[in-house]
Design a protein around this nucleic acid. Structure first.
Lengths: 154, 154
DNA sequence: TACGATTGTTAGTCTCACAAAACATTCTAG
DNA sequence: CTAGAATGTTTTGTGAGACTAACAATCGTA
């Protein structure tokens, strides 16, 4: 259901007319599924939708949609900016993950992102090292002689 | 379904007798759900289960279970070791996320984890900075004067 | 303005995952 | 060895979410 809300908000923000067909294409489902979803969301007071008409978010619906969108964006940006995942995959994964990540964990993803992006220069050096590792497989400054020491969490 | 497989593997590895009731408790579902799941997994050739009897993984089932467990562990350790999330939350979230993360993305989580754990000493300094940020809200070496410069992804 | 194309809705069905209740089997303690 | 107790299964029902086919409304254009 949240995906439907998010799609409505997304289409509206793009200036597209928010029609059943647009939503169905955006989400890759058939139109009857959209109609059913809109009826449910309408009963919950999150959207307004009159038969054969346009779709509008209520105030409450807009708030929920913003929340979902925020979750999506935090995850998507974490995947692209930190893990260096290609944009298409990141969007798809974020779309699924946004429903399985608890608020507490989302908060940490968000914090990590803020931490990375607060870094003084273009990119924290260690993140560059990570991305080199992904590309070339070289673990930076590894010490092959000293057997790996187990870390301890605070 | 994968959760059921994983639960079977987990119970077995703990030496517990793998019974319907154990599985149901491990997953927080009722026994009929377990019976139904076992019937389906049995049809797929992943478990062996005779009525009123014990549950065993087939070779194929064991392989799948290992795979699921691996996904779970990568995510769980990422959440605890990198994002510094408490173990209980991390386990729950990993359990849900393991079904929404694509193989490509899991690979990156895994790489990031390996990168962190390959670090020479106990913990990479920047990770300590992040965790301090989570705890005390201090962004290290931020430069408030210079407006944030956008990073560019390779 | 009226017909065909597009868009939208309804009705009916499917799958999946779960649960409650009733029934069946196995275990265990007298 | 037998009566509960514990465990397991079947039946039946729910709800979410999707689909197809058939029907309805609206739009665009000749």
């Amino acid at each position: 259901m949240e995906d439907y809300l998010e799609a409505v908000a997304m289409l509206r923000s793009r200036g597209k007319a928010v029609r059943v067909k647009e939503i169905s294409q955006a989400l890759g489902v058939k139109m009857p599924s959209v109609t059913a979803a809109l009826r449910k969301l309408s009963e919950e007071g999150l959207v307004e939708h009159e038969r054969y008409g346009r779709v509008k978010l209520t105030t409450a619906g807009d708030k929920t949609a913003r929340n979902v969108f925020h979750r999506h964006e935090v995850l998507r940006r974490f995947l692209t900016d930190v893990l260096d995942i290609d944009p298409a995959t990141a969007r798809e994964d974020a779309c699924r993950m946004e429903h399985s990540v608890s608020p507490a964990t989302l908060e940490r993803f968000s914090k990590f992102l803020a931490f990375v992006e607060a870094c003084p220069e273009d990119m924290p050096p260690w993140l560059g090292n990570y991305q080199r590792y992904v590309q070339y497989g070289e673990l930076p400054r590894a010490r092959p002689l000293k057997p790996k020491s187990r870390r301890r969490q605070r």
